[in-house]
């Protein structure tokens, strides 16, 4: 006959001693031997641990009715459980089912092996990606910036090899032939050692409202207009092109725009200039938004050759800290 579990109501087939659903015992079970209790009592209950009794006790004989819950009965002791006995049963014989499914150090081993496999796969994948030197599709040096400085137009070869400088907002690769002209907590300005006409700036700025890259373009344009030249405008009527900036949380798609303006230096004649931006809205690790950009500034007649002289290493090796793509 089928047995209905008194605990959860599941109907169990003949021969089951344990409910197939909830694991509760279905019938009376005698106190013969089974699981091993080889482990010592835990150290976290001082004074509570008991020695295991060395003599058999009167425990269920297996001939009575089911010892299931009988909440209405005051005497709640199990059948055959004689008054005067303790709940402690003799130590089970060895050779029975182990207490745990995962033995000994196997938990650590399983997690360790899986971690090493995943970690190794990740390392190999990264090595393969880095090894194939071609940039991934969609990632390209910004417009106006050559992929290599080896071409003849370059005028920036100096003895310096370039290197990373750490700022609070980015780890900036200062290319060979450039040096740091100015630096603040959220910006840095690099100028070529042999050319005082142009400058490259990198900056980050927290955003207080959600913005798209296009809206950021407008903000940067408005900023140039407020800085003395209301006629400042996007140089071409073409839609902005795109490039990639690198954040610590991944590559971030940026707009590339050029703003044409007139600059009036204090005590000097006004001149036409171009302010180029590679700008993007990025998401920080906490989910807030920030604007990040690289700015290339030069007199209009010098802009093309200056932007050509900026090594692509500036863009491929500069990493904006705590910045990740928004999509």
């Amino acid at each position: 006959m089928a047995v209905t579990c008194s605990h959860c109501g599941t109907v169990n087939p003949d021969g089951n001693t344990i409910c197939k659903s909830c694991g509760m015992p279905l019938g009376p079970v005698p106190a013969d031997t089974a699981a091993t209790a080889a482990d010592a009592p835990p150290p976290d209950l001082p004074g509570v641990a008991l020695p295991v009794l060395d003599e058999p006790l009167a425990v269920p004989s297996g001939t009575g009715s089911t010892p299931a819950a009988q909440p209405n009965q005051t005497n709640y002791l199990p059948p055959g459980y004689a008054p005067g006995s303790s709940p402690y049963l003799p130590a089970p014989a060895s050779g029975a089912a182990p207490l745990h499914r995962t033995g000994g150090l196997s938990v650590i081993a399983i997690v360790g092996v899986i971690s090493l496999v995943f970690g190794g796969a990740g390392a190999v994948a990264a090595a393969l990606r880095t090894g194939s030197s071609a940039p991934p599709s969609g990632v390209s040096a910004p417009a106006n910036v050559p992929s290599n400085t080896g071409s003849g137009s370059s005028t920036t070869q100096t003895s310096t090899n370039g290197g990373i400088t750490t700022t609070p907002f980015a780890n900036v690769f200062v290319p060979p032939g450039f040096s740091i002209n100015d630096q603040g907590s959220d910006y840095i300005v690099l100028t070529p050692d042999n050319n005082d006409n142009g400058a490259v700036g990198l900056q980050s700025e927290p955003l207080t409202s959600t913005k798209t890259n296009a809206e950021l373009d407008q903000d940067l344009l408005a900023g140039d207009q407020q800085n003395g030249d209301p006629s400042a405008k996007i140089c071409t009527t073409k839609a902005p092109t795109h490039a990639q900036l690198i954040g610590s949380g991944g590559t971030i798609t940026a707009d590339v725009i050029s703003i044409c303006e007139n600059v009036t230096p204090t005590g000097g004649p006004a001149y036409a200039a171009v302010d180029g931006f590679i700008d993007a809205v990025a998401k920080t690790s906490t989910g807030s938004l920030e604007a990040i950009w690289v700015e290339i500034f030069a007199p209009a007649n010098d802009y093309q050759s200056f932007s050509n002289s900026i090594p692509s290493t500036l863009f491929t090796q500069t990493i904006f800290s705590n910045a990740a793509p928004t999509t």
Binding site: D14, G15, N16, T17, I18, P25, L26, G27, P28, V29, P30, A31, D32, T33, A34, A35, G62, T63, G64, S65, T66, P92, A96, A97, P98, L99, H100, R101
Partner: peptide, 13 residues
């Protein structure tokens, strides 16, 4: 695991 296997007794019951 940890419960006593008692197939025979349970079947009797």
């Amino acid at each position: 695991t940890g419960l006593l296997p008692a197939q025979a007794a349970a079947q009797t019951a």
